[in-house]
Write a protein that binds this DNA or RNA. Sequence first.
DNA 1: ACAAAAAATGACTATATAGTCATAAACATC
DNA 2: GATGTTTATGACTATATAGTCATTTTTTGT
Lengths: 294, 294
Amino acid sequence: MMDKRKAILEAAVELIAEYGYTRTSMQQIADNVGVSKGSLYSFFPSKEDLIISIYEHYQQLVFERAFVVGLDNNLPPYKRFAKQFQVQFEGILEYKSYMKMHIRGESAQNSEKLQGLHHRMRGRLFNWLEQNLIDLYGESILPYKWDLMWMTQSIYTSYMGLIISSENVLPPEGLGQHIVRQIDILAKDFLQGNSVPFLDDEMMRPFSVGMDRDGAFTSFQDRERAWKALYKRIHELRNATYYFEVTDRISEESRKSKPDELVMRGLFRLLKEEETLAAKAYVLEEQLLPATED
Amino acid sequence: MMDKRKAILEAAVELIAEYGYTRTSMQQIADNVGVSKGSLYSFFPSKEDLIISIYEHYQQLVFERAFVVGLDNNLPPYKRFAKQFQVQFEGILEYKSYMKMHIRGESAQNSEKLQGLHHRMRGRLFNWLEQNLIDLYGESILPYKWDLMWMTQSIYTSYMGLIISSENVLPPEGLGQHIVRQIDILAKDFLQGNSVPFLDDEMMRPFSVGMDRDGAFTSFQDRERAWKALYKRIHELRNATYYFEVTDRISEESRKSKPDELVMRGLFRLLKEEETLAAKAYVLEEQLLPATED
DNA sequence: ACAAAAAATGACTATATAGTCATAAACATC
DNA sequence: GATGTTTATGACTATATAGTCATTTTTTGT
């Protein structure tokens, strides 16, 4: 139907998560969706484009919404940090197959585009962690930030793997608290001057993503706030599902290299039909589609 | 020459580390070694056997020797633990390409044998960590062992990745100390009853490797001790290099599915020529080649 | 120097699969 | 319901590569 594209993405994720990129053929994917191979190629010019689209589609779903929702409250820093992890883990549970694929590092050889995507993703993870550390401990934590961030991301990633492979469901909330608790212990030890930092800026340069280098990146904080406000309103509605579908589509479109402005405008129009959303939708629209003089 | 097999393994590791298993062809490997494709198949019956042999060969080199040498001293538990990490990291630096391949999880589809190898490997890692935790903190650490072990292995693995990908050489000694320091902080916090454990035996069953299920595994502790004693003696010799070559060869042979007993006996004979090694060599020989009534 | 044995070679086979495109089915419009 | 247009199909092409094996080269023994 209308979302055959999505069906293809979903089937492809399942198969690639299970068998890996090279051992999943386009024919298999086509058979799984129930369309012909030719159709696949009318949606995705090549297998590589298909996997890139998968990453674009799901990275969004899992990470960005989690970032956004995580910020969506006025909790004190410690609890907010834990909540953010929780939301991440919830997203991971929801999109297990994608995360499996992601963790297995499945990809077409060395696609430039994909590498860029991963690099930006990792950079965002670190920026996000840094922001939280500063919120929690102030600037005095900065000399130890790399060690803390490195250990945090490694613990985070490994629990993620555990969630994905485990039969038992690990409770996301408890896990979020647990991780923050451990970081806190390590951070306080550093602050008390008991441990010496091991990593420094120089060494970690490859993991830094300049906030200013990438336009899309610079405005991310503002965009995040706008998303945050909108989602909050939608949550309060009865037919939230419908509006989430619309925002998902907006989100998807805005990720494309050349988003279709008319499509975006149209989607925002749909949101504005619900008057309680109109204001917030407008703010987000401004963020994503700045006025013509750009 | 004599070690064309080894040359093939080395070339294969380099290529697979760089391009991945599926994107490395037997032809490429052959070209890199400078032999024909046909020759490859006289050493390894299939591509799958080749990659299995790679794992068997290097896992040995990187992990077992590190375990052994790590135990090879009478340091107090804390320092010994740090030293063991150090030795591991040194091994990792030495066999960067292999570790790259290992981390990327390169392998033939789902080879039964390879999965077994990995499972045992991971089990040993956890057993090793558990032993060290008990040495450090006594039995009272057991309720928290899974959380500590899980975080430790995730930190360990991620620093391993950093070592491999980083241009700068991270000093293995400092890194070993650093990791043990962080574990210590977390452990003490658990022992003081400030944190609640998150993982339990039930949940972590897939990661437990029964010490008794696998014969080779049961005797590992004793074998380790025997290796330890022998290495120590060799270290004290002037021409240690030669004897290390012999022990390496023994080590390699003993890992094969069907070690050639005569080869082993001969190699041990060489060791016994140096009288200061004779006794220790005998003990190890007993471990690796128990008397005929088996 | 020769013959027999062992080792190495690379052209060849079988198979898998990304991507194409002429044809067919579905749909739209009058 | 006839005609034109869009969309879907799957047989087909081109290519890559694991694995084989008859032939050639090297080594060994006398």
